[in-house]
Write a protein that binds this DNA or RNA. Structure first.
Lengths: 187, 187, 187, 187
DNA sequence: AATGAATGAGACTTCATTCAT
DNA sequence: TATGAATGAAGTCTCATTCAT
């Protein structure tokens, strides 16, 4: 399992550093310290490798997003937990986050993979939360997907600015972002 | 000038359809109906071509963003104008918008180009607006770049959901988005 | 057309010298004096190239086989002409002959190609000749395809022995072979 | 001994099905149900394996060809026996026959092997038979190798037509072939 | 300015072979 | 003996770029 992990790690690193299009096999072999044929013991081809790295990242994110989620907590507490998790995931795993964000709609990622439901669970939870909030008259009436995209998008966007050092993300800023995203969708 | 435009248009089309990484020159020649050597009369190489398409798109967006902007209008009116323009630009010119959004941080785009100020004017206007609002006690105190990224990010994110048909964007939804982004940054 | 011919000639030469399986592109490029990409201006891939060389050889042989054939000559004269032509073709164009003989049933040659009728004409003529001879009571009654294969096979076999210098093929021997193949099928 | 036989059988099968050039070790391992390293316990490399399969086939054929040969029988009886045996060998062991026929002149088969005398005995017998027949004034005077090649070639050619279902080979046809090959070389 | 045949560096991939278990 | 993960040389093929027309 070690070699396979080495290859996948090297792949994600290279994608992060130079972009998917410049990940060549020779770079990959050197980085992962494996022979050129070794990849083909684990992956049928380059596309398969990239897809597996993608699947892996999605899985990792899916698990992270619902960490510590308490279905019985207050609406705001639940909202805060989900937004916080997404933000923290991005901050702790920038390579995974950016890879997912950038390539989710790239032709390199097979359509089936794009629509996998590894992280469906967290997605479902957010949708439920929105609908619940609207029923309670707390969250503004609007298309729940639009609402979902809105709060999700705020986090993604903020993270991308953070990665290029536009601003720090300390407790204060994090608080402000959570609050802003909450206010955005209130009635 | 016609051939040059043909090539640039074909480039943007292909990037939109298949992604930058799969834009090959042979596809480009066929699409643009030019001979393979013709490109080199206008662009020094592939990178130069892509950069010029990028510069062109940024320029186009920069002009669009400040359409109808009235510096003497109320804070909210000015905010609404800028957000609306960004949203309309994305809706009218999805290819340009997505290209800018996706490749602004790609290694394909030269760093100098990324930091060009073709659209600096609109950027400056937004920053000023934020600072002005904060001084007036209307907009919440926070890093102005963070604030900028926040309202910009909402639009970008919403557009991407729209492009993959997650929801429609009619007057109602547009109204809700502008309102949400406004409430997000209020005190 | 010159480059294409160069490549095809080099291909046939290499197949003759080292066998199809050891015809690599790098050997081919050096032999044909072309750049490695040039092949792909004329052939879609290696299989296509080999198939075209095969088609070319079959065409060449098909034309050669019916040279000087006089439908009004006597049965024996016609028989002699066809057998002679086949023998002469093999002696003059050993590369083409051996390539056809060896690879007609190789998986490298596409089935459609194998069953092409470029040389159908000569094949038809031989069949007709056999049937005619049988009707005249000169040629022994037997399956005409079996008879065809018999006289064809004698020539092929003799040529292969000749190519590895088992014996010379002068006028005397040629006479003996024609005679032997004629006697073989007489009543 | 079982593993070795498994490997050799799988090799001959694959050669028959797909041609020597497309017999790869990975196909071989799967077909023979052995690990990839196992081959190297029995054969030094791929060429050695193929040569051994070739040697094996030649040996098998050599023994088959002289089955029931009676040196004291009449000239025609001896001729018939040898031709019959060759025909029967091809019909009973098409894989071995075709492998020998196709690759006897392939560079894959080492020259020493090609000239081995495993089947020299039968070859010698045929030569002797020809010379004997010529001395008796029954067989036409001609180069004995040419004569040998002629009668051998008729059988080979007929078999190849049979393998691709050009015609059946029943008692009648077999009789006709033996007769034809006999008449071909008579005075 | 416009062309496209020719190029060759370098991409992806295969496959015989090795070696630690 | 038997195995199969690992290897890397060598194969096929792509594609940005050049240059003679």
């Amino acid at each position: 399992m070690s070699k396979k992990q080495d290859i996948m790690t090297a792949t994600l690193d290279l994608i992060h550093e130079e972009g998917l299009q410049s990940v060549t096999f020779s770079k990959l072999f050197k980085r992962a310290n494996v022979g050129s044929g070794t990849i083909y013991n684990y992956f049928t081809n380059k596309e398969d490798l990239v897809n597996e790295v993608y699947r892996d990242s999605r899985l990792k994110m899916g698990e992270f997003l619902i960490q510590g989620y308490d279905p019985n907590a207050s609406l705001y507490e639940r909202f805060k937990c989900l937004q916080m998790n997404r933000l923290k995931f991005g901050m702790h795993f920038p390579k995974n986050f950016l890879f997912i964000d950038s390539y989710s709609f790239s032709p390199y990622i097979s359509p089936e993979l794009r629509n996998q439901d590894d992280d469906y669970h967290s997605s479902k939870i957010i949708q439920d939360l929105i609908v619940d909030g609207q029923r309670q008259g707390i969250i503004k009436e609007m298309d729940s997907h639009l609402c979902h995209q809105l709060i999700h998008g705020i986090i993604s966007s903020i993270l991308k600015g953070y990665f290029v050092n536009k601003y720090p993300l300390n407790e204060l800023q994090i608080q402000q972002i959570i609050e802003a995203s909450w206010k955005a969708i209130l009635i």
